[in-house]
Nucleic acid binder design. Sequence first.
DNA 1: CGGGGCCTTGATGCTGTTCAAATAGAGTGG
DNA 2: CCACTCTATTTGAACAGCATCAAGGCCCCG
Lengths: 213, 213
Amino acid sequence: MSLALSNPAFDAAVAAPDDWAGAARLTFRTGEEIYAQDEKADLIYHLVGGAVRTSFLLADGRRQIGDFYYPGDVIGVETGEVHRFSAEALGPCEVLALRRAGSAAYDAGRLDRMIWQATASELQRAQSHMLLLGRTTACEKVARFLLDIAARFRGDVVALPMSRQDMADYLGLTIETISRMLGRLQAEGVVEFVGTRRYRIRRPGALEDMAAA
Amino acid sequence: MSLALSNPAFDAAVAAPDDWAGAARLTFRTGEEIYAQDEKADLIYHLVGGAVRTSFLLADGRRQIGDFYYPGDVIGVETGEVHRFSAEALGPCEVLALRRAGSAAYDAGRLDRMIWQATASELQRAQSHMLLLGRTTACEKVARFLLDIAARFRGDVVALPMSRQDMADYLGLTIETISRMLGRLQAEGVVEFVGTRRYRIRRPGALEDMAAA
DNA sequence: CGGGGCCTTGATGCTGTTCAAATAGAGTGG
DNA sequence: CCACTCTATTTGAACAGCATCAAGGCCCCG
């Protein structure tokens, strides 16, 4: 894949499993919308390269990030007819898109099983997110967030594909609070930032303790 | 059912659908645990009468209520091997319990479909709960809560089967804040409480406005 | 009628927000 | 490659909302 060589956002590109054979390949640029809130949920997506956020907008402009997705994740699975959240590319992205139903060319059993797994995964994510939002302090939220993101990476230095605003809207905080908590964690020698969007965990034990739960 | 006549908690008792034919019938008293956090999830339950809460305990004692369940709801469906939350009876309860797998006597297809529907329903609940916890004020949370509970009732006067502490742990607030917000809504003539656990919505429009989202 | 838990109310404090401004960083064109 | 611009991020100070601490009242039930 030529893009993979030219853009670091695609470094983590993964091969699609067989279930996605014949799916349409789509690419999105930074900030582009993959699907919109309240749009009919015809397609499901397999993220191959890049990173994606899902978001929910309230009438007055407040925003809640549903989750962040990485290569290998399935996006766009819904329990109803329409998308409750929208999905946007955090950087250059590549996805495979498959029609949820109707195409007789695909093995319904396989597709169903995949949708089932994706739904179960979504439920786990949503429940964890709920626990994170409900009864934890700003410091605990940020610590848990850094650990969760790091868990998805192989390397020592973790890249944050999202902005501080995205983190804030995910954790139910403001960017200022995010910034202060990150500063505090760094001052305490728990994490070390290299630039604003890369960090290394210096004392994993301490970070775990701060994340509680 | 004799209990239904003697205890108002069972007023809403529902007939179990065919899928639950042959399930074991169990009853629980107020506060009794139906299943425990981290317990192996062998059984799924159909709530026939009463009301149930699911809760998650953090190591230091903080508690997050997952959701409240009413007759007709399915409880105990998990994406993993064990229960992430525990379930407790809010009052006298009656449930039907079915082994999740292993029993050849049941039609696997039907059971699977039921589990699928319950999982999808759980996902919707968790997502809504996430939105409620993330970006809303105490007042909005309480207003939304009163509307959601009322939506599950037929009658004019809505019964709250849970304590203020349960409401607080559901909304990520303290009992004092809950009490103050309820007091405020009543003072403004939006709702009217008769006793501490029954209310009537006086101005539905105003309540909707306060719930935003 | 009395006990005991549940709920409400009041005073005070802390956590996180808001508002404001400085700084750093990324992208662009010369 | 560097200067410039625009946005993202950090930092500071004042404020607000909700929590905490502490009584006091209500209600349910024996």
